[in-house]
Amino acid sequence: MGRDVLDARSRSYRRLILDILFKVKRGHIGSAFSILEIVRVLYDEILRYDSKNPKWEDRDRFILSKGHGCLGLYVIMAEKGFFPKEELFRFSTASGILGGHPEHITVPGIEASTGSLGHGFSIAVGMALAAKIDRKSWRTFTLVGDGECNEGSVWEAALSAAKLKLSSLTVIVDYNKMQCYSSTAEVLNLEPLADKWRSFGFEVREMDGHNLAEVQKTLRAAPFSKTKPSVVIAHTVKGKGIPDIENNPVWHHRAKTTEEELKPLLAALADPACAGEWEGVESP
């Protein structure tokens, strides 16, 4: 999983996030970089939605249960037209609609306000159950963090989803193996993670969460079973794309980022090929 798997578009998202971080001085950058390819593929080709009619009844539901990764979601939702791109540069400011965690009231297309861990997956279970009761064809996806899997409610939800045979539900675990303090192995070991989900009654797939071809192939096949809920364990790298940030707990959340700190990070992403559409978007 070297840097080589990130294409120009993936790099441009990261440059944009660094730019936002520099402008507003705060954000969970490591988590955002960890989920970018997953969210990109979901919104490119997996989820059914209408960004101009975000409450469309038959849309697929997506809940970013690990809400602190929201910068990785916002840059893609802006690109897809849920809200103006200029909002990105008002991230976490009094004049903007985008807070440090997703907020369903202020942000079109956000299904549920998350941030406190261990909530979004259960909400997704309720949504998938509603679809099942009403025999609707829309699907529910939720992206949970590995640190989030420390929460007991995640495993309550897993038991429940399996018991209810919610085959339209797909859980994606962002398994970057780092949490705020240190590695998941040190803080609260989740292994054997795939076996755990399997034993809870899920159909399990694993993928490299930064390899676009793998992410596409896996998510296109989801959900994987007609009788069981599905889970994708996405092996990712926290801070993916910038060596200084990768797997570095210092970058779990940053406030007051300085220009001196940012310059070498941007240089790490410097590549003429990544001068994408974002280059024209400026801070208002």
Binding site: A112, S122, S153, A157
Partner: peptide
């Protein structure tokens, strides 16, 4: 039967699951 659920001693999950149901019109 499709509207009766006995879901176990998992109250935290149940409250949020209810919210998901309510967000979907239930």
């Amino acid at each position: 039967p499709d509207r009766f659920y006995m879901e176990g001693v998992s109250e935290a999950h149940l409250i949020s699951m209810m919210a998901g149901l309510a967000m979907s019109g239930k």
